[in-house]
Write a protein that binds this DNA or RNA. Structure first.
Lengths: 190, 190
DNA sequence: TGTCTCATGTAAGGGGTTACATGATTCC
DNA sequence: GGAATCATGTAACCCCTTACATGAGACA
């Protein structure tokens, strides 16, 4: 998938400017990548060339002029085609796991610090995701089917970070617990 | 993190050629991205310039000559620094969720097909990941701490795909179950 | 005075993919 | 005869990030 599809999707809700699209991307949990000017403005002019969106320039006094983009029938058709195309697997790029893979280079103290800082970041992020989910859920313009869909999307995101947090806590428990009194240093699983 | 760190990590186990590195990347679950020639050979010549690896050309008859890369002391130092640096959050780019966000454009039949094809892909991938995990685990060259680390890494990966599979099954249950007999169409959670 | 919001864009560069090129040997 | 393995590399091209440029009005 590319940013083009995501933009068509957002424009299928309502017309928007590049600036508004950017805000939606940045605040989104599922499309947070792509939230930068370069791609958005490039993609918009590309979609315009392809006839998938139309644009109208609106002059304002006080603020700069803006270009409002609207999805065309061809755009809706292209969006629907993409939505029903065979999905890809999620791409999980967890660089902490790569660091952790060579964590035996570290002392117990350094390893503890590493795990702890990951845990702290995860906790903060999880709170943020829950807040985004909470805000996303009460949107009155949705039919019951759409409501169910967005509920499931939020559950997916929150539970993935939640699971990662549980995992890192398990890591700490297994690798570091009782290191100081020397009873069971590396407790292995059943 | 960049591919440079991952290459240094692999070379910290034992010297290797670009070709061997590529195989390790491709077969790996945590570094499967980056398994392409372009990056590997570029990165190797960059690491060589920086003095983090050394190389030795070995001529063979029957096969092409190869360059065996070895990590230097500076390389080990740089690796250790990176390993103990503050970790990043995982980057999850789940394009299925973006498709799913606009799934209300689809009929029940089309939505069912979409969900089912995602489920099938996930199942196949999960089997593969479990197989990789199984093979990864019995490595005799590891001390107890390293064993525990790799066990935890495998658990992380398998459980993340496992959870995704459970989620998609829950999606199907909530959105599509009993659609045909019309009793409860979109059952909402408690 | 400085920062924030609105608003559109460009420049430079890193990261990553797919495909191609070469060429001998081995296996089916 | 065709594909796979070993082995190094290049070319063209997306995707994506960070930073910069411009410029008015609002707010502290």
């Amino acid at each position: 998938m590319s940013i083009n599809h995501a933009i068509l999707g957002i424009l299928s809700w309502k017309p928007a400017t590049g600036y508004e699209l950017k805000k939606i991307f940045v605040e989104s949990s599922i499309m947070y990548w792509s939230g930068n000017n370069n791609q958005i403005y490039k993609s918009l002019s590309h979609l315009l060339n392809e006839g998938l969106v139309g644009s109208e320039v609106v002059h304002q006094d006080g603020s700069p002029s803006k270009k409002i983009y609207t999805i065309t029938d061809a755009g809706v058709k292209s969006l629907k085609e993409w939505v029903s195309s065979t999905p890809e697997l999620p791409e999980i790029k967890n660089t902490f796991l790569v660091q952790f893979a060579w964590a035996d280079l570290l002392s117990d103290q350094e390893l503890n610090d590493l795990i702890l800082s990951y845990e702290i970041e995860l906790k903060a992020h999880l709170i943020m995701e829950k807040e985004i989910a909470r805000r996303t859920l009460h949107n009155p313009d949705r039919n019951p089917r759409e409501k169910a869909i967005w509920e499931l999307i939020s559950e997916n995101i929150v539970s993935s970070y939640d699971q990662e947090l549980k995992w890192v806590q398990e890591v700490r428990r297994r690798l570091l617990e009782d290191n100081n009194n020397g009873r069971k240093i590396y407790e292995l699983p059943n």
